[in-house]
């Protein structure tokens, strides 16, 4: 980068004087560059960077979000370690993530493999799988409230028809979290399918033909040839779905509100309750930072393990 001072005049210098073409280019790029990025830098600074620092400060304060806060040092973080309601929310979030992510990844892999063929009506099948992706979380949750209604829901009616007793679903502490998994898998399956279908397009047909000539059955070729080639898509999906399931909130808010008896209180729902029902802004910020760190660590581990696995296969 040149250290020369820029000419003070902003207008283009007359061509015949030409102080130096390089200098002019440097000046015009600096001017144009900052003109292009300054609105973005201001906005991202104000709504991206300032809040990150501010939330960090808040996490060391007792703050009701109305009156000025009081510095309490590490008290909020200490409280996190001894708060049974918080550890309950962590447990629920971990259980949810551990069930949701594998079900969603394997489910979308199989469905994508099913949809990756040219047969009559394939567009209809694809649309049926994709529509839930654009259905909003609140609408999804409202529909599932109705489908899974213990008294009049159509799912219980179907279960009764095959001789299974009616279930409580969202109202049964033992089933509520699984019902949430079911609902969110419905909402996210199409997303995974879109990612896998895009990745499957790049699997070369020659490779599969070669496998077939070597006497490999189609089923074996799928698991031995295609699935390993889909490793980058799988890694991406595992990471992305994990990040999103650790941040689960909307669907809980609309269906169970964390109940019954705390069985679906996940971390972000607990954060929301602390911040906006109990007005513990400082404690809520500590929860947010703990979540942030957990996401960073988990993502780093997944990346590392994922890379090692895909290198080991080569």
């Amino acid at each position: 980068m040149t250290s020369a001072t820029a000419p003070p005049a902003a207008g283009p210098s007359p061509v015949h004087r030409r102080p130096s073409v390089l200098l002019r280019v440097w000046w015009s790029d600096t001017f144009a560059g900052w003109a292009f990025i300054s609105p973005t830098v201001l906005l991202i600074g104000l709504f991206g960077l300032v809040p990150v620092v501010w939330a960090f400060v808040l996490s060391f304060e007792q703050n009701d979000l109305i009156s000025p806060g009081r510095w309490v040092g590490l008290d909020n973080y200490r409280k996190l370690l001894h708060d049974p309601a918080f550890s309950n929310s962590v447990r629920n979030t971990v259980v949810y993530t551990l069930v949701f992510v594998p079900v969603c990844v394997i489910g979308s892999l199989l469905v994508a493999a099913l949809l990756n063929r040219r047969i009559r009506g394939i567009t209809f099948y694809r649309v049926a799988v994709f529509i839930p992706v654009v259905t909003s979380t609140v609408a999804t949750a409202t529909m599932f409230n109705w489908l899974l209604d213990p008294d009049f829901g159509v799912v219980n009616a179907a279960l009764n028809k095959v001789g299974i007793a009616s279930q409580g679903f969202f109202r049964d502490p033992k089933e509520a979290l699984l019902a949430i998994v079911l609902m969110t898998v419905w909402g996210w399956l199409g997303f995974g399918v879109i990612i896998y279908l895009a990745a499957l397009q790049s699997v070369s047909a020659d490779l599969l033909e070669a496998a077939a000539i070597d006497g490999c059955t189609r089923w074996r070729a799928f698991w031995r040839v295609e699935v390993p080639l889909l490793a980058p898509a799988t890694l991406f999906l595992v990471i992305w779905l994990t990040i999103n399931s650790l941040q689960l909130f909307d669907e809980i808010f609309v269906t169970t509100k964390g109940g019954p008896v705390g069985s679906t209180t996940v971390v972000v729902y607990y954060l929301y309750v602390q911040a906006f029902q109990f007005f513990n802004g400082g404690y809520a910020s500590a929860i947010a930072y703990a979540l942030f760190m957990a996401i960073l660590v988990i993502t780093a581990i997944q990346l590392k393990v994922g890379r090692r696995l895909s290198h080991g296969e080569r």
């Binding site: 300032v50 809040p51 990150v52 501010w54 939330a55 808040l58 990040i243 972000v268 954060l271 910020s285």
Partner: peptide, 21 residues
């Protein structure tokens, strides 16, 4: 670089300060 760092931050972290701003 600063722009990229904000990409990693979950929304819940900035929620309360953004509300105050």
């Amino acid at each position: 670089m600063l722009l990229l760092t904000t990409l990693m931050v979950p929304f819940q972290v900035v929620l309360i300060p953004t509300l105050l701003i």
